[in-house]
Amino acid sequence: MFTRIAAPLMIAALAAPAVADVNVYSYRQPDLIAPLTEAFTKDTGINVNVVFLNKGMVERLKAEGDLSPADLIFTVDISRLLEAVNAGLTQSVSSPVLEENIPPAFRDPEGHWFGVTARARIVYASKERVKDEEVTTYEALAEPQWKGRICTRSGSHSYTLGLLGAMIVRHGEAEAEEWMKGIKANLARKPEGSDRSQVKAIWAGECDISLGNNYYMVAMLKDDEQKEWAESVRIMFPHFENGGTHMNISGVSMTKSAPNRDEALQMMEWLSSDHAQKIYAEIVGEYPVEPGVPPSDLVKSFGAFEPDTTPLTEIGAARPAALKIVERIGFDD
Rank of each mutant, 00 (worst) to 15 (best):
D31R: 01
T136M: 03
N23M: 05
A13E: 14
L72S: 00
V199G: 04
A63C: 07
V130E: 09
S257R: 02
Y216Q: 11
G111N: 03
K227L: 04
I168L: 10
A188H: 01
L187W: 00
K131M: 11
V48A: 01
R189L: 06
K147N: 09
V135M: 07
E134V: 06
I209E: 05
V97H: 08
D224M: 04
W203Q: 06
D333L: 05
D108F: 05
S296N: 07
F240C: 02
D77E: 12
V135Q: 11
P295T: 13
P191K: 09
S154E: 06
C151T: 05
A16H: 11
G212N: 12
D66Y: 00
D208A: 13
I183C: 04
G251H: 08
S273K: 07
V130M: 10
I78R: 09
Q145E: 08
W229L: 03
G243E: 10
D77M: 10
L265E: 12
V19H: 05
V19M: 06
A87W: 10
N260Y: 04
H157K: 09
W270Q: 08
E177P: 02
L9M: 14
Q29A: 14
F114D: 07
A87F: 10
A118V: 13
R4M: 13
W270F: 13
T313V: 13
A34P: 00
